[in-house]
Measured scan of single mutants.
Amino acid sequence: MAAGGDHGSPDSYRSPLASRYASPEMCFVFSDRYKFRTWRQLWLWLAEAEQTLGLPITDEQIQEMKSNLENIDFKMAAEEEKRLRHDVMAHVHTFGHCCPKAAGIIHLGATSCYVGDNTDLIILRNALDLLLPKLARVISRLADFAKERASLPTLGFTHFQPAQLTTVGKRCCLWIQDLCMDLQNLKRVRDDLRFRGVKGTTGTQASFLQLFEGDDHKVEQLDKMVTEKAGFKRAFIITGQTYTRKVDIEVLSVLASLGASVHKICTDIRLLANLKEMEEPFEKQQIGSSAMPYKRNPMRSERCCSLARHLMTLVMDPLQTASVQWFERTLDDSANRRICLAEAFLTADTILNTLQNISEGLVVYPKVIERRIRQELPFMATENIIMAMVKAGGSRQDCHEKIRVLSQQAASVVKQEGGDNDLIERIQVDAYFSPIHSQLDHLLDPSSFTGRASQQVQRFLEEEVYPLLKPYESVMKVKAELCL
């Protein structure tokens, strides 16, 4: 049975990233139509530049190519590739079939990587351009969430054990800070992308030097003109047959890092959902379990974690691919890159769409948070109580021993009897502590235990987050809708 299948058929496997999760716009960027249309555009740009620099290419040939950029006979191309065992030459023939007058000058002087690699770089750039505003929107939604809850005390956790208090907004800023680093890295790697350009079979530009009869300047002009037509500021000066596969490492490393950030955020949300302090959106008709109707599973956060793990592992592909590119190139890269580049971007696209949807509907339960604080705060307040007693004339050592005994009794009630923490009640009825009984409410005010959390939130948002989001103001209103 021949390899390949009808990918629109229910009898043929289709990647869930495309069929179930990723956005239509990201799927289109990695589609065959987008790819092969870009090949034709690159052939047109090459012909236009070659004509401008004096090669015998007519206006009629150029116009014929322009008129057929979208006229792609995919069936013919597939048949040609089956016959020739070469995808680029299959599309040269297919393009030439609908451009008979231009057929002889299509791909003039070029090698397969002229269309293959340059198209990949265009796709990487455009895919990054799709991700950047999506990530900015996630940051914006979380920034709104953090600002609104900047002063809401909550129990902090280290080692997932109760620690000092923080605020809900401050905790959210930990998430935002990681995503801001990801946004900066995505922008950097996007701006650092260079075009492969017009380089020939081993990167020496020998074929173009021959076409222009040894004119170095025209060869350099050709490279520059096509690079500018493709919208790049610069091209690699040095290439082998391909652009260095280190570029793929750079791009997928940034995406993998984004995956790590999203995994951490969504894990926190899942843990908070278990504590009943916070939940992701839950639709009115949504079913959490087929057997347990009360369940409210954090399905979206779980999906993000599941896909983020996949995204983090994909960076190993370009690392290994770059390491086995012998001399000017081997074909070890080809099949692998067809999979890992598309999957990385479709996965990143999915987790950003999902995280935006989550961040637009996060639900906080202040009463649950308050109750958990009441359970733990008495123990945390013991040092403040000791200091207040010393100020009232008591002995630190005597007070410490009193607190120690009462704390152990209260802990026994919590752990052995399943009761509430009654340390404060014990202190309130103990005559030894009568000098500070009137101060206990103040000493137990949760806001006095959150330090500068709310001020940190305000400063972080104003100095770091809002300036970073400013270039994306025009796209901030787009909502994230999930079908599944």
Rank of each mutant, 00 (worst) to 15 (best):
K276Q: 05
H310M: 08
F345C: 12
Q285K: 15
G394V: 08
Q51G: 08
S9T: 14
A410D: 05
K101A: 12
S454Y: 13
F327D: 02
K295Q: 03
A2L: 14
G156C: 07
L132N: 14
S207E: 04
V390T: 08
T52R: 12
K199Y: 02
V226T: 10
K402M: 02
A49G: 09
I339G: 05
L209V: 11
R20Y: 00
S67M: 14
G240E: 02
K233R: 12
E228L: 10
K224R: 12
K187Q: 13
V115F: 00
M181K: 09
M389I: 08
S474D: 14
P378R: 02
D191H: 09
I72K: 03
S257Q: 10
R171F: 03
V254E: 09
R300H: 13
A22G: 11
N336K: 04
I249E: 01
F195A: 06
L124W: 14
M225F: 10
S301G: 13
S434W: 11
E277T: 04
L135I: 13
K224S: 12
A47R: 02
Q161Y: 00
L272N: 05
T38G: 04
R149H: 09
A2T: 15
V92E: 07
D445T: 15
L132R: 15
A163G: 15
I57Q: 02
E473I: 14
F449P: 03
S301E: 06
N185C: 13
G288T: 04
Y466E: 13
L193H: 03
M89L: 03
A235F: 14
V465M: 06
T321D: 01
D192P: 02
V219H: 05
A103P: 07
L108M: 12
H310G: 08
L183G: 05
A392V: 13
P281L: 08
E250Y: 12
I122E: 00
A411N: 08
I427A: 06
Y21I: 00
G259H: 06
V368E: 03
E425D: 13
R83W: 10
V251W: 07
F433N: 04
L152G: 03
C113Q: 13
S253Q: 11
V115H: 04
L46A: 05
T52H: 14
P281R: 13
L307A: 15
G197C: 08
A3S: 12
L271A: 06
H107M: 01
L482Y: 07
L440P: 01
V414N: 04
Q408R: 13
E383Y: 05
L444S: 04
E481C: 14
H310S: 09
R137Q: 15
Q458S: 14
L124H: 10
R309N: 08
S290L: 02
R396K: 04
K35T: 10
E425Y: 14
